[in-house]
Write a protein that binds this DNA or RNA. Structure first.
Lengths: 121, 121
DNA sequence: TCCGCTGGTATGGTTTTTCGTACCAAGTAC
DNA sequence: GTACTTGGTACGAAAAACCATACCAGCGGA
């Protein structure tokens, strides 16, 4: 599959692309990465302001629990979308920010945004 | 929010867009629509071949169960992404196809596809 | 009469997600 | 010595998603 396929080519060949890449299409893992109740909202907050501390995120995402926020951040970090910077101070300080990989999701959000503008009332 | 915002404008204003549209951003409901174990795969099959009968879909998506396929199709139909056409024959025949709204997700898939080409090994 | 065909529904069980609550370390301020 | 701070972890319970199995209607064919 050509990595720099234009949209027109993608559109024209979509059925054969999907057919040959069966079970190997990159769309599913991306949707999975963004799945879960809080991940998109965390990414939103980090788009609006970055870096953010754990406690700041928690306040913005109220009523999220410590557990959920910590888990979601850990998974986002594991997927390479979010960067975690820990400062060894007391009381502890940890700052989260989007990686380049995370920021590169912006065209995806834009495409969804356009679809939503058309179809979501 | 301007419905025909260009990508450059979106990119430049993303934090203020997200900030003002807090809780009203169209990205979340779209991700929710595609969430679930089978929905994307159903849409894939309908991109490859359309219309498809219930039984054909079930065969392609083995080992999906009747229950899960019926539920997913009902939800996709409820979201307006899939059209259900029922023919009153014996034995029954029902055909599923993508609506325009469903087909309009293609640019979203393309954006994700491009991201995946860059980041998924 | 009995079987098979299709597109499901009904029911109950298992697994995965999410949530609520309690707790911790280590320093600082009082 | 007591209370307060931050960024979590641990544990169990509740809720949601998913799955397996059985069953149905109604016609055609043997």
């Amino acid at each position: 599959m050509n990595p720099s396929m234009t949209y027109e080519e993608f559109q024209r060949r979509v059925s054969s692309v999907l057919l040959t890449e069966k079970g190997n299409c990159p769309v599913t893992p991306v949707v999975q990465m963004l799945q879960g109740k809080w991940k998109l909202q965390i990414i939103y907050e980090l788009c609006i302001q970055s870096p953010m501390r754990f406690g700041e995120l928690k306040k913005m995402l109220t009523p999220i629990t410590n557990t959920m926020l910590a888990n979601a951040l850990k998974e986002l970090e594991g997927d390479g979308l979010v960067h975690r910077e820990q400062y060894n101070e007391i009381p502890p300080r940890v700052e989260y920010s989007l990686t380049e990989k995370g920021k590169d999701l912006l065209p995806v959000f834009y495409a969804i945004f356009c679809w939503g503008m058309k179809y979501i009332p």
